[in-house]
Design a binder for these strands. Structure first.
Length: 597
RNA sequence: GGUCCGGUAGCUCAGUUGGAUAGAGCAUCAGCCUUCUAAGCUGAGGGUCAUUGGUUCGAAUCCAAUCCGGAUCACCA
């Protein structure tokens, strides 16, 4: 892949070799974009070179600058400020860059499946007892975006979802529905299935709390009350029945989960999220038991007097961890061991990414430790993409206090806001209803997705609803707007019969024009860096900067209205290249771009 | 208490292996539409990069200590 830094490094290295007789590794040179308040395109930091030049910083910089100017035609000028060598490249060079990179729809993307690496990425992983919320949205957007980023870096990527469809919490909503539901269904109530089931989960909790209070009034301790509450006992009984495949319970479970899946599908659809494969815990929760037993035989684990099986991970700086209970049943991590082994066996994975919140960092360290202890060579290829929590301005989301932001509500709200803004600004006059719907949905979702993805995944973030529906400044709609503007210009060019294909004309460029070319040619390295760091935020920050730069250019320059044919052609080419980068970058974030808005 | 993560403008965030006078957006104030989309552009104010030491030509960035947040350390998932 072409990189301007690499290109320049080689020239610099050549200069240094010739001047000082020392061959330096080209990528140890420190090259950066020249600060805006200095003249020049790129800057070589010469301080580290003083020990080979054995001269003052200014002198060293000047010597290298002279050499470059004398020997390479693309260097037009240089200046030295303290230990910084600022070099300028010719318009010719930048024109050549534009010619080389322009006109390729897939610019910045590596050919599909070219690395031969197969990566599985698991994300979303919802429970079927309540609808998706804001936290899931961050998870889904991250997982989906990272998958695309890896794809365009040449990996084969399989996106999977592991649905938590069993367990005591599922039984709670089932029980509440059975007791208080009077046959309510999504159809009868016209509620979305996942929301309906979620309501019964909440109902269980309420009734359960009442029972606890009741028992406490009768003299039981908090813990005793929690354990002895009739509802809890019933839920546990239901779980036992489920595990023994009681037909009535299984049927209820299937029905209610069916409602939830219908609801989830809608949410995923609205968000534009999809998976290649969906796993269900009801089918995987027993996996791993035999592996643990084998590990026990091999001495990787040990048994306590009560019969429970443990692993000692103190050598990894972790603790002892139970793998099988005394009664032989498995715990959560047992399943994770099983699914990991199954997936690596079945798909011959090179890497497995788990998109899971940072509160489970310990869990994944334990998982890797166990797999390492079991001797799986790929245990190092599990990667926990650990993202920070999403908080509200008033603090953590708490379901008890009803501050959880529902995913569906949020999406609807964003799209509604987009519609209000558009009609207020008269942006969509003359479009059909369906076209308007499409644009508003694109813009509303763009705002939401960008707002979340622009933040470094590792960091906790604050979701301020008021700021999220702002469509100005560093937002998704701002970037979409830039794209729509360019499309408008390109449409106009076509209408006017202006062709701008072919090589970039030789013209005298403005700073803004050069800046745009500079930015677009760094797109490929941003894409690859984003993959290395599993960080859509890098792509988001890049595309924002590009859009901002383009809007300044747009403000200061005529494009269609430019009368000089060469300049007009050049500006159209630059515009198109920016549009390609914007569209691609947004696509990596899972965000659509409208051709008008 | 142990481990991990974080602390940058009033608020939300950038800051790419240590580089020049620390940047954006929001909010506030002041400007720009007979001209290709004003969801745009320009300008102003706003900072002890938590604190203190250290490393060196040079630190928001690396190291140590301290302070303040958060997560985690379940036979929960």
């Amino acid at each position: 892949m072409f990189s301007i830094e690499t290109y320049l490094s080689e020239k610099f290295a050549q200069a240094i070799a010739s001047l000082y007789g020392v061959t330096l590794d080209a990528n140890t040179l420190q090259i950066q974009k020249t600060h805006t308040d200095f003249k020049g395109d790129f800057t070589l930091v010469v301080f580290p070179l003083l020990r080979v030049s054995k001269k003052k910083p200014e002198e060293t910089a000047a010597e290298i600058g002279d050499y470059l100017k004398m020997n390479f035609p693309e260097f037009s000028d240089y200046n030295v400020v303290k230990g910084f060598l600022n070099v300028s490249l010719t318009d010719n060079f930048w024109g050549e860059m534009l010619t080389q990179t322009g006109g390729d729809e897939n610019f910045g993307f590596v050919k599909a499946n070219s690395t031969g690496k197969h990566v599985m990425i698991e994300f979303s992983s919802p429970n079927t007892n309540k609808p998706l919320h804001l936290g899931h949205i961050r998870n889904n957007l991250l997982g989906f975006s990272v998958a695309r980023i890896l794809e365009v870096n040449g990996d084969k990527v399989t996106k999977v979802n592991l649905v938590n469809d069993r367990g005591i919490h599922i039984c709670k909503s089932m029980l509440a529905w059975q007791k208080y539901g009077i046959g309510e269904t999504p159809q009868s109530s016209s509620k979305k299935g996942d929301h309906l089931v979620g309501e019964y989960y909440v109902k269980f909790d309420k009734k359960y709390k009442l029972e606890i209070e009741d028992l406490k009034a009768k003299g039981l301790t908090e813990d005793e009350a929690k354990q002895k509450a009739p509802l809890m006992l019933e839920a546990q009984e239901m779980l036992r029945k489920w595990e023994s495949k009681d037909p009535e319970i299984i049927s209820l479970w299937e029905t209610m989960n069916g409602w939830v899946y219908e609801g989830f599908e809608k949410t995923y659809n609205n968000l534009g999220i999809s998976f290649e494969k969906v796993y269900y815990e009801s089918q995987t929760y027993l996996l791993g038991k035999s592996i643990v037993s084998k590990g026990l035989e091999q001495g990787a684990f040990f048994k306590k007097p009560d019969g429970s099986v443990w692993v000692d991970l103190t050598s990894f700086g972790l603790d002892e961890k139970v793998l099988l209970r005394a009664d032989g049943t498995s715990v959560y991590i047992t399943q994770d061991i099983g699914t990991a082994v199954q997936r690596f066996d079945e798909f011959h994975l090179n890497e497995h990414i788990y998109v899971v919140g940072n509160e489970q960092e310990y869990h994944f360290n334990v998982l890797k430790g166990i797999l390492n202890r079991l001797g799986y060579s790929w245990s190092d290829h599990l990667f926990h993409l650990s993202y920070g929590m999403v908080n509200l301005p008033e603090g953590k989301m708490k379901s008890r206090e009803g501050t959880v932001v529902d995913a569906d509500d949020l999406v609807t709200e964003m799209i509604d806001t987009a519609r209000e803004m558009a009609s207020e600004l008269g942006k969509l006059d003359g479009l059909s209803e369906t076209e308007i719907d499409k644009v508003c949905s694109t813009v509303g979702l763009g705002a939401l997705k960008y707002f979340i993805l622009k933040v470094d995944p590792k960091k906790n973030m604050t979701f301020n609803p008021r700021e999220s529906i702002d469509f100005n400044g560093n937002t998704g709609p701002f970037i979409q707007y830039t794209y729509a503007r360019i499309q408008s210009v390109l449409r106009k060019a076509e209408e006017d019969g202006i062709s701008f294909s072919g090589n970039a004309p030789a013209i005298q460029m403005s700073e803004k024009e050069k800046e745009l070319i500079k930015l677009t040619i760094t797109f490929p390295s941003i894409v690859s860096l984003a993959a290395e760091q599993y960080s859509p935020a890098l792509v988001a920050n890049f595309v924002y900067e590009l859009a901002k730069e383009y809007n300044q250019f747009y403000h200061d320059h005529y494009i269609i209205r430019e009368t000089n044919d060469d300049i007009r052609k050049f500006r159209l080419q630059v515009s198109q290249q920016v549009a390609v980068c914007v569209k691609s970058a947004m696509w990596l974030l899972g965000i659509d771009v409208p051709s008008r808005m």
